[in-house]
Design a protein around this nucleic acid. Structure first.
Lengths: 232, 232
DNA sequence: AGCAAATCCTTAAAAATTCTATGGATTTTA
DNA sequence: TAAAATCCATAGAATTTTTAAGGATTTGCT
């Protein structure tokens, strides 16, 4: 279990860093979290609104106190301004720098592809879909994450459940095909993202359609079925 | 959501069938569950201690009232008396007969292989490892399962987390090899369970050992590593 | 210790699967 | 309707998996 520096009984401190590009959201977390009654802990919430500033704060913390929990927004930047780094990258970085620190993700929607990816690359101690969050559940989350992780919010659990219940097995190339198709990439352009010949891509697409029970239907039907089963 | 037959406001009834081969365990559930305060529901717990009796009760219920929740013990029988049917079979049956009924599993230990199998074949609305259960968590479980399933107890979530965080991909044959090896089956006897030649099995075993980082170690090291990552 | 059984490892050929290029039919889009 | 994109079938190439056979090593048992 994470072990914050503290004197024996007096006031134990639980240090949290919340990273979200919306200032107002951060204020919400800070307001709720610093109010949580939890086993005599004094909860302190620091904040950051950009990848760079969060990175700096975490790096600085390595040699002094370390944070007990990191709350990371999955979508650190607006999708159109193509910033190179996301919340996922920040989590990967943090795992290296401060492995004992618990990491919790928050995302606006339950994007299955993203959830699956983060569960593999970061294996966070918690995953909260924002619409699931209210003061009480956030409090539950903090306690569970400290005492007996992981904590997954209801919608996150829904995505995980779908994935676990699935007996369709896809390899990396299949997943990439589905992902890029769902982003609107045209079949003929897929070869730029996936190291396969156009005809192989077509073969795999046809194979995917039989797997998902959308034979002789178009690509839209395929990606809808894939979404439905939690792959995208 | 499941909709038990009840008159408008008066007393809504929540019907539960608990199946476990240990009488004493059932009494525990009954005692706790019928005491739960839940939104004006009157909770009734019926019980069964064998596969056959449970099957009969469920079949009979199809044409009258239907149960809202089934609590099923994973290990319905002692492992030595090789009864043909397990809690998993009962769940599969129930899903067919009464698809609206919520199904919850309880198991004595967090056997990853079993959990993974049940999550695929039955996709239950809840999975509780018995050592995680106390009156409060059981109450939470019932409420969550009725209102917003699924509910997975802490140790079950641990197993699920391991699985989701894994990037090792095994096919059915690999999984069978691991499973039978872990049961003590000798390599030369594996071919009776898996449609492969002895030399293929050896190849796959070697491949598995590299995947799990136990190259040049014995089979025990392999199955320990596989257990550790949640595959067995 | 010593024997037998089981496991481990290599090699090489057979079998199966996947990839690829090509050409043409069909559908979608502008 | 013309052009572009998608869909589908075929067949040879490339890759991976399976299989058989041999011997080296380890394990289990008396």
């Amino acid at each position: 279990m994470s072990n914050p520096e503290h004197t024996e009984e007096a006031t134990k401190t639980l240090r949290i860093l919340a990273v979200d590009d919306h200032e107002i959201t951060i204020l919400g977390y800070k307001f709720i979290l610093e109010d949580v009654e939890f086993d005599g802990y004094n909860i302190i919430v620091d904040t950051a609104t950009t990848f760079e500033s969060a990175k700096k704060i975490i790096e600085d913390s390595v040699d002094s106190f370390k944070y007990d929990i990191l709350f990371l927004d999955v979508q650190l930047f607006a999708p159109n301004e193509d910033q190179p780094y996301t919340g996922e990258d920040l989590g990967i970085l943090a795992r290296k720098l401060v492995p004992e620190t618990k990491i919790v993700y928050m995302s606006s929607f339950s994007d299955n592809f993203r959830i699956n990816s983060i569960l593999k690359t970061v294996d966070p101690d918690g995953y909260l879909v924002k619409t699931d969050i209210d003061p009480k559940s956030l409090e539950d989350a903090v306690k569970t994450i400290v005492l007996d992780p992981p904590y997954y919010s209801s919608k996150a659990l829904g995505a995980i459940r779908k994935k676990m219940a699935n007996d369709i097995e896809l390899d990396e190339k299949d997943r990439k095909i589905l992902f890029h198709l769902s982003k609107g990439t045209k079949t003929k352009d897929l070869e730029k993202f996936i190291r396969l010949s156009p005809s192989s891509i077509e073969n795999r697409k046809r194979h995917l359609k039989t797997l998902f029970g959308t034979e002789n239907e178009n690509d839209l039907a395929l990606i809808l079925a894939a979404k439905n089963k939690g792959f995208i």
